[in-house]
Write a protein that binds this DNA or RNA. Structure first.
Length: 287
DNA sequence: TGCCAGGCCTTCC
DNA sequence: GGAAGGCATGGC
């Protein structure tokens, strides 16, 4: 592809970054190998990585470089971060080596809230399909290379969507949570812009007020759209891998809080990045 | 068929 | 505050 924008990248693996479970809207291009097409907040992006270069096309070239850099966290030194977290212990060292170049994306706040509410007790293919359905029905249409894509709708655009409407998008019992969350945001019972300015603990408390948002979902939202790299979302996979790696010989029953405490103490400000490596490793039988 | 899926809500001690 | 049970839906 003849790309309008080419960026040099270090310590970046596009495939692992897009396939490690933090995002739901990227698809492989049918026509070109190792090329992905995704919908960011206000545009469609086509991106391909060859060695240390990203080749990018888009439906919208306004500020494209800064949009892409922000989304893929390209202004942060992951080489340094991976070097630091590799010193934590041999497990992390091995995991990071296996999936080096995973970056934590900076995704749209509202989209992450809705997406991770949908994720509860669900599987990734179905989560992706529901998000796609919601976008197609209620989001703005964007034409890119003669194909139709849809932005994830704003809260305002979902104003009149009923519980039944959401159910038609395959979200099941979560339909009520989605509807109530949209309502809470539109009625300013929760202020998204303000949450971004709060410290992590307070921001989490605010997010927990939303129906369908528990501790794990709140942590995912904070990690994947608010640059809070210190949070450590614990789902069934992370619980499993942490148990295998650090609590196997424990005699007492291990709770999530025990795992969280361990992560905070040992992984510190980069716990979220460690978590993403562990998640991708365990899901792909790498560790 | 029954179990599981990037958990959370509700009920009941 | 903590332990159960239920929950929509599709894939295996």
């Amino acid at each position: 592809m003849k790309s309008e924008l080419i960026l040099k990248v270090d310590c970046f693996n596009l495939k692992d970054t897009l396939e490690c479970g933090q995002c739901f809207r990227w698809e492989k291009d049918n026509e070109e190998d190792n090329t992905y097409i995704g919908v960011l907040k206000d545009r469609v992006i086509k991106v391909k990585q060859i060695e240390n270069k990203l080749y990018i096309d888009s439906s919208n070239y306004d500020n494209l470089e800064s949009v892409v850099k922000k989304y893929f966290d390209l202004d942060v030194d992951y080489y340094k971060i991976e070097k630091v977290i590799s010193t934590f212990d041999e497990n992390i060292k091995k995991a990071v080596k296996n999936t080096s170049g995973i970056r934590i994306l900076n995704q749209n706040f509202f989209e992450m809230i809705m997406s991770y509410i949908i994720s509860a007790n669900n599987n990734i293919p179905r989560i992706s399909k529901s998000i796609k359905d919601i976008s197609q029905k209620y989001g703005k249409k964007v034409i890119f290379e003669n194909n139709e894509y849809y932005l994830f709708p704003t809260a305002q655009e979902l104003k009149n969507v009923t519980e039944e409407d959401f159910k038609k998008c395959g979200v099941g019992f979560r339909a009520r949570y989605l509807k109530n969350t949209v309502k809470a945001i539109l009625e300013n019972k929760i202020d998204l812009e303000q949450i971004k300015r709060l410290d992590t603990k307070e921001a989490k408390e605010e997010l927990l007020k939303l129906q369908g948002v528990g501790p794990k979902v709140a942590d995912c939202i904070l990690l994947f759209s608010c640059e809070r790299r210190e949070v450590f979302p614990i789902d069934v996979w992370v619980e499993r891998v942490m148990h295998n790696l650090y609590f196997k010989n424990s005699t007492k029953r291990i709770r999530k809080n025990d795992i969280l405490e361990y992560a905070n103490k040992n992984f510190g400000e980069y716990a979220g990045i460690v978590q993403q490596h562990l998640f991708h490793n365990i899901r792909n039988n790498l560790i």
